[in-house]
């Protein structure tokens, strides 16, 4: 979907993004991933053009078949006439920052389809199953006119409630034969599931995994116990219709959430991720001398851990200038209403 060179010269990059130019969207995503003050204007501008996309997250332990299942789900959405964007998050190496992004390998059949946009995103050190730029990237993909966004998250752990914050539908996968079976799905991740899937139902013992999940569901709050457990074989494209129906039903429910509420939820995610990054940044700039001073007092029993933690935070916040310039917090081209997000 590339625009003619002649119109390109006339239209601004931002307008081309809104018009659905995939190359421009792809470039915007890279800039948002890099973050920093430079991309703030873009982040803020995007926020006025979002709210129509719905986000479906697929989470589960590595090897459960998330990428393969997304591939089958995307094929089904295409048969049903929908365009769809996929964001596949893979971990970055904590040592080098590099990554091999291979999820889309399993989605190869869609690579030449203009109705499918796939983007690999490296987690860049962020924990919790996502990358810290994901809320902003979702805004960009949304603003570019993609109404269904599928999110593949990194593995499974206990801190993925962040995913629940920004996704409308949470599909949690498990599969038989992943070592300690259902234990691979921790209670926290189960809590966020709107739909549970046992993938690889072609393998032996899949029924046992289903039963284990059923009993684990009892751990959930009473009003959230009644969720579907579906069996799929992503490889053989079995159970995909049922899965797509279940997701569609959930998307309909999600539509009852007003656009404004929805935008605020994602904005909250964005602000919280940003705040985390600032705190982390500041902590990493703690001087040896300051650290020693506080450690000394804790080890001598003069400070409790709690007080010491507060002292630590106070120290790093008084020492370093804000990484974000003031005008960023008051962007003049933005509707001030959007900033009062009430939390």
């Amino acid at each position: 979907m590339l625009t003619e060179p002649a119109t390109k010269a006339k239209e601004s990059a931002f307008q081309r993004l809104l018009d659905g130019d995939v190359a421009v969207l792809a470039r915007a995503i890279s800039l948002l991933e890099t973050g920093g003050t430079d991309s703030e204007v873009l982040t803020n501008r995007l926020r006025n053009h979002t709210g129509s996309a719905r986000v479906v997250a697929f989470t589960g332990p590595p090897g459960a078949g998330k990428s393969t299942l997304i591939n089958a789900y995307v094929a089904e959405l295409r048969r049903r006439g929908h365009r769809v964007a996929v964001l596949a998050v893979d971990p970055s190496s904590p040592l080098t920052g590099g990554a091999v992004l291979g999820d889309r390998t399993r989605m190869g059949e869609h690579s030449a389809d203009a109705g499918v946009f796939i983007r690999s995103v490296a987690s860049r050190g962020h924990l919790g199953g996502l990358a810290s730029s994901i809320p902003a990237i979702l805004d960009a993909v949304d603003a570019a006119g993609w109404q269904i966004i599928v999110l593949e998250t990194v593995g499974a752990g206990q801190s993925e409630t962040e995913i629940a914050e920004i996704a409308d539908v949470n599909v949690v996968l498990n599969a038989p034969g992943l070592g300690d079976d259902v234990q691979a799905i921790k209670a926290g991740i189960l809590e966020i599931a709107d739909i549970l899937v046992v993938n690889k139902c072609d393998l032996p013992h899949a029924d046992r995994t289903v039963r284990q999940l059923q009993s684990m569901l009892q751990l959930r709050k009473a009003e959230r116990r009644n969720i579907p457990i579906l069996s799929t074989s992503a490889d053989r494209a079995e159970g995909i219709c049922e899965l797509s129906d279940a997701i569609s039903a959930r998307i309909e429910d999600a539509k009852k959430v007003s656009q404004e509420q929805y935008r605020r939820r994602r904005l909250k995610g964005l602000l919280c991720r940003r705040a985390e990054a600032i705190v982390r940044n500041r902590l990493s700039s703690l001087s040896e001398a300051d650290a020693d001073r506080i450690l000394e007092q804790v080890s001598q029993g003069k400070l409790s851990i709690e007080t010491a933690t507060e002292a630590l935070i106070a120290t790093v916040f008084s020492a370093v200038p804000s990484p974000y310039p003031q005008q960023v917090l008051n962007p003049k081209d933005d509707d001030p209403d959007n900033w009062d997000c009430g939390f």
Binding site: V22, A23, A26, R27, I29, S30, S92, G98, A99, V100, L101, G102, R104, T105, G108, S111, A112, F117, I118, R119, S120, A122
Partner: peptide, 22 residues
């Protein structure tokens, strides 16, 4: 950050991959 694919890609697929992955 390396986007890796298996062999046997078609020219058209390589082009759209390069676009989408910037």
């Amino acid at each position: 950050e390396v986007i890796y694919t298996p062999p046997w890609q078609q020219v058209g697929a390589v082009v759209s991959l390069a676009i989408q992955e910037d």
